[in-house]
Amino acid sequence: MDDVARLLKESWTLVEEHRDRLSGHFYARLFLLDPALRQLFPAEMTGQGDRILDAIVTAIQVVDDPESFEEYLRALGRDHRKYHVDAEHYATMGVALLDALRCTAGDGWNLTYDQAWRDAYGAISEKMLAGAAADGNPPFWHAEVLTHERYGQDTAVLTVRALQHPLPWRAGQYVSVEVPRHLPRVWRTYSVANAPNDDNVLEFHVRTPPGAGWVSGALVRRTKAGDLLRVAAPMGSMTVDRASERDILCVAGGVGLAPVKAMVEELTTWNRSRWVHVFYGARRAGDLYGLAGLRELMETHPWLSVTPACSEEPDFDGEHGDVSEVVARYGPWTNHDCYVSGSARMVRSTLRALAEDGVPPPHTRYDTFGDL
């Protein structure tokens, strides 16, 4: 597998800067091979290619870690049940992907790369199909919107109840959400912002700044109590390690608070000995929409501390600066389990600060929320 991983990463550099071309060729070839597949995808394909490529890139990154590779792909297979794909579809997609890679890479492509991708895709599809076959849950859950609260122009917090079947998830995981009334067959992932509960109720924090996706816009501006959504199987490994005895650091930016809030809620049900430090950052104080709730939890749980920070409000009664800078000032964090959630830029800067502080990579887990 080491040689295959090396060849995959090496050959990916030939197409990495041409994702639009790769995506366009892939879908053109896929729908030519099987026109019936077109009905499984949204009417507007903008952005759909990025999701496929993101999954490929993630698989490439973990292919040389057999345990993570298998866990990720089995979860991805469970998630893809919502698209109603079967073994025949996987084979067709494999043909289309190889053809797209060859044409996009051009003269740099060779038979060795070709065989490595054939072998890798065979392993990928096998594990995804195994994950799908082993899942006894429905391909997705219908969920009714219970509450919908706006915070400013671009943020909403909503709760939904999954209907008919229990939806099992762990605090810190994320799910795919579809708004069938407005955007059929368009899915976007959101972290669940509350710990699992017997009522089958999930909370989502959604932000839709300029240029954000359609699903977020529909959830913030067009969704109301009583509407029906669809929610797919939970994914993600940013969950608390109960076997660890290390204290916990959580760093959240904006709606990246969602998985952190869920983990803190879960910790309130069993934690007695681990200190938990939450750093919550935003540009302005008005964007710290979840601060009051965190402070309520802090009042009843002495092991919890909450440090808010603003980067663009000089009069803020708290820490000033990017949350990654604030975290660095409070270190060291070398003996902590660290969880980071927020925009891609915020996550990168925080991971860099933790690395400079000497936190071992295995002690850090993170989740990114695009460019929010």
Rank of each mutant, 00 (worst) to 15 (best):
D199S: 11
Q173T: 08
N200L: 04
Q164V: 14
A156R: 08
L202F: 05
G172F: 06
Y151N: 09
Q173S: 09
A162N: 03
D199N: 07
P180S: 10
Q153T: 14
V179I: 14
P196A: 05
V175S: 05
P184W: 07
L183C: 09
Y151M: 04
A195S: 14
A156P: 03
P180W: 07
Y190F: 15
P180H: 12
Q173Y: 02
A171C: 04
V160P: 00
Q164Y: 04
V201M: 03
Q164T: 14
L202A: 06
N197E: 05
Q153N: 15
P184S: 09
N194V: 11
L167S: 11
A193S: 13
Y190H: 11
H205T: 00
Q173L: 03
P168N: 09
R181Q: 14
L183F: 09
V179T: 15
N200T: 08
V179L: 10
E178P: 01
T159N: 09
T155F: 07
R188P: 02
V177K: 03
E178Q: 13
P196H: 02
A156N: 08
V177T: 08
L158S: 09
Y190R: 05
A195W: 04
H165E: 14
E178H: 05
H205L: 08
D199Q: 14
D154F: 06
T155M: 14
Q164W: 04
E203M: 11
V192Q: 01
T159S: 15
R185I: 07
H205N: 08
F204K: 06
F204T: 02
P184C: 10
Q153I: 10
S176G: 13
T155I: 15
L202S: 00
L163S: 06
H205Q: 12
W169D: 03
V201L: 07
P166I: 02
V157Y: 00
V160L: 10
R170Q: 15
P184M: 11
Q173F: 02
G172V: 06
R161W: 01
Y174R: 04
L183A: 14
E203T: 15
D198C: 01
D198Y: 00
Q173A: 04
V160C: 07
E203H: 04
P184T: 10
A156Y: 02
N194R: 09
L183P: 02
W187A: 06
N197W: 06
V175F: 04
A195Q: 04
A193G: 14
V192F: 07
L202P: 08
S176Y: 12
N200P: 07
N200E: 13
E203Y: 02
V201T: 13
S176E: 13
D154M: 10
Q153H: 13
V157K: 11
A171I: 06
P184I: 09
N194Y: 10
P168Y: 01
P184G: 11
T159C: 06
R181F: 03
Y190G: 01
V192H: 08
L163Y: 05
D199A: 15
Y190A: 03
V179W: 00
R181M: 11
A162M: 10
H182G: 00
P166A: 12
Q153G: 15
Q173V: 03
P196C: 05
P166S: 12
D154N: 13
Q153V: 07
T155W: 00
Y174G: 00
G152S: 11
P180L: 10
P166E: 13
Y190C: 02
H205R: 03
T159V: 00
A195D: 11
D154G: 10
S191W: 03
R188D: 05
V157R: 14
H165C: 06
P168D: 14
P184K: 06
